[in-house]
Design a protein around this nucleic acid. Structure first.
Lengths: 332, 332
DNA sequence: CTGAAAGCGCTTACAG
DNA sequence: CTGAAAGCGCTTACAG
């Protein structure tokens, strides 16, 4: 069996209450006693059982993260940010990677059973019912890259503003016929980016023809089909704005296969500024998102809600994006 | 307060023992009673408290994952594999992302406190002492992409074989002067790959000059410096074998900056076959690793050890790699 | 098939 | 500053 607090107490010749006190360092303890206890702890190799502790304190010191089951650098930077914030305050990270679209409830079960002190949900489209259930169980929820009403805290990047900035830049190149490759329509980021594109075009008296919107899902390969569809259009678009870099890279491949050149024949731009963007040829003009920051701040906020036991201020944070001009837009 | 098993028992007019029985579905329970209990559970919205349950069963149904703090697709595919295996058996995943090199013990604490039933350590170079401690606490450990003696189960890809295959291919192109950009020397994969390179060269009566080994650390940007160092050499290498695709991509950028062409002036090959490899120009010849499989199998093994309470068979698994020929080696 | 009781390993008022 | 006792929410022999 493993070493318990009773073993330590016995060895140190004190009660378990005293052991608990020196372990948690909260109440005052005679320095001599404390030393004896510490010696017992060390010699026995004792470690507090986190489960027992959590059961009585009602704090597991674990934070739950729900994230779509995609493998891209964009999401992983968020995870890194979350992980850093979480471990900085000595908490652990429990991850549930949820397949988009499957809507099964099972995945959330660990979170409904008192396992985590707070939950961070990334672009995951939780149902209202699920959110309500979590709320009933009194576990704070923070949304990342999505929003859902006023009452649930959220951290997003300025998808709209970034899209506007990018579109303005493309317009300055003189492009007129825009095409858009959309992301998964389950998440709101793609819609926001599209809205930015539309509004900026409208500002110059242009409109986006619906036929020039090709559906994608953010994932590898989906930009491929979308671009093929766009290349069947007549006239061809001047410039393609893909909802993320991955799809933009796919589009580039297709355009090259068709014997056309980027940016001379068709310009391209993406969104996210993942590492891939700077490695392809021509390097991709895109919008940088502070993903690590996003995850870090969201996690800090979640932890704060737990600590303060009240909502955070401000409830809704929008992090600025930054236009990254490379060659695929026609610059240089 | 939250709904407990007592509330359910009261509502259903039975004892908590009975409620527990229907919840866990193990012992025989009168169908009528079971229905009453289930109705109470549903109407109260009751969920078992996972902490309390874990405390008595001595199973938390959580699996711990230790992974270096890098953000690359290679590692994340492993995570995805682990996550799938873990959630397939209704367990949760607790992640600790460990900075290489910092050697602080703190990160392992959650794992030493009874929080997880098993641990999977990815290329992380746990110290012997840490492994021993974990063993003392009776939590099974499975190593991924590393080995440490006979007694600890491990899952690795065939780094040596893959490197041999790749080298043979490059030799068939007629290259003679090889250079190697190494990975972090904390992990054994890079050493294995280097060994494969060396042995294959030796098979053709060639040797690798130490000056042609440039140190890298697998991370973004480190191939950059390494390649600069190699380009200062006289004579220049015919071909550069980078220990992973990321560094190979960096090397490509540097070679282009120097006004040289790949593969005409210097050929390049990588390792891993991450998505990036197929997007750069020229597309990268590399060695595919079954990373998802690796994580999946490792997690299954860990879960099996927990379930069977005995070591698995076989203890050491080597998954085959596959040569992926693209253009950077000179093919086409 | 079901209930009363002990126990998992801790923390935390409450006394002293 | 310290200890005895209750309790966190479950499971599981043990009786019946």
């Amino acid at each position: 069996m493993s070493v318990t607090i009773f073993d330590v107490a016995e060895r140190a010749g004190v009660s378990i209450s005293t052991v608990s006190r020196v372990l948690n360092g909260r109440d005052r303890v005679n320095p001599d006693t404390a030393r004896r206890v510490q010696a017992a702890v060390d010699s026995l190799g004792f470690r507090q059982n986190a489960l027992a502790r959590a059961l009585v304190t009602r704090r597991s010191e674990m934070v739950g993260l729900i994230i779509p089951k995609v493998n891209d650098p964009f999401h992983f930077e968020i995870v890194r940010g979350v992980e850093d914030a979480v471990s900085l305050s000595n908490h652990s990270l429990l991850i549930v990677s949820q397949t988009r679209n499957d809507g099964e409830e099972r995945n959330l079960v660990p979170f409904q059973r008192g396992l985590v002190d707070a939950i961070i949900a990334v672009a995951v489209d939780l149902s209202r019912a699920e959110m309500a259930d979590l709320e009933k169980r009194n576990v704070p929820l923070v949304l990342v890259q999505q929003t859902e009403g006023e009452d649930i805290p959220s951290f997003v990047t300025d998808n709209y503003g970034g899209a506007c900035q990018l579109t303005e830049h493309l317009l300055d190149h003189g492009y007129q016929r825009f095409a858009y490759i959309s992301g998964s329509n389950l998440t709101c980021d793609s819609a926001e980016r599209l809205r930015g594109l539309r509004d900026s075009l409208a500002g110059r008296g242009l409109a986006l023809d619906d036929r020039y919107i090709a559906p994608g899902d953010y994932l590898r390969g989906s930009g491929y089909e979308a671009m093929q569809r766009l290349l069947a259009l007549d006239p061809l678009p001047d410039v393609v704005f893909a909802a993320n870099d991955q799809m933009a890279s796919d589009a580039l491949l297709v355009i090259n296969e068709y014997g056309l050149r980027v940016p001379e024949d068709i310009a391209i731009a993406g969104f996210d500024d993942v590492p891939l963007a700077s490695y392809i040829t021509p390097a991709l003009t895109t919008v940088h998102q502070p993903t690590y920051e996003l995850g870090f701040q969201a996690a800090q906020a979640a932890l704060n809600i737990v600590k303060e036991e009240k909502p955070i201020e401000p409830m809704h944070v929008v992090l600025p994006t930054r236009l990254v001009v490379r060659r695929s837009c026609g610059c240089h």
